[in-house]
Amino acid sequence: MLTWRFITLSLKSAIEHRADFFFMILVGAIWQVTVVAFATVLITRFPGMGGWTPGAVLLMTAVRSGGHTLAGSFFMGARQIAELTLEGRIDAFLLRPMPVYRQVMLNYFHVPMLGDLVVTGVMFAIAARYLDLDWTPWRVVYLVAAVLGAMFLEAAVQTFLGSFALRHPTAKQWQEWTEDLMATFGSYPLNILPDLARAVFVFVLPIAVCGYLPVAFLTGHTTELPVPVWAAAASPAIGAVLFAAALRWWTTRLRRYESVGG
């Protein structure tokens, strides 16, 4: 009940500035259009990328984009931690009868996700049209799991980095950069990268979980994978595991929180 009231209050606060609210919805759509723009260029101007057909690359883009939309909807508050700390609002969150993490997430209604959702749906439709794939029920279920895995991975990364913002506001710069990096390079087959870069995106900042590994498994592009096929198949679960770890990290950092007021 309290959670619902937080959500409605955040939404009311966003709607208060009507023009800005409207423009933020547009932002979501335009942001995704930029991703679609690249994908369209890929399909129409190039025969593929790294041995992947344009349809498969577009599906990867759609999975990452879907995960990003959901992460933006539920975990966007992680990007606000630096401001909340500087304004001393974390202090107030500590006094309320609700976990601080949940309050941080509910504090901000991410308006662009309304536009994001529409464009993501369109992207899935286009990808399905270009892909010669039999959409059996298990494939659809796996696709949904892949999108959720991408969401959890992005939430994990932002929560992990956002935890640093409790003491170091510069962490926000890294959060923004990582989001850009995931948006730009999470949508393409990572076998185009040199081995070292690919290893980083699989084992250090596992952008591969956002799209590359699950879609490779789903579409059968398994010959050049940097991990065993079973690991690629299980990749949606990795996002969830990392998110659980990031939450533990957040709890540890919150215990060391010191108010800006001293």
């Binding site: 500035h17 023009a19 800005d20 609210f21 409207f22 423009f23 933020m24 547009l26 932002v27 335009i30 942001w31 259009v33 930029t34 723009a37 308006v111 662009p112």
Partner: peptide
């Protein structure tokens, strides 16, 4: 008073 939306649109449009 707020310009997050317009600013974000201009940034994205200027990139695209």
């Amino acid at each position: 008073l707020r310009n997050f939306g317009v600013l974000a649109i201009i940034r994205l449009a200027s990139s695209l």
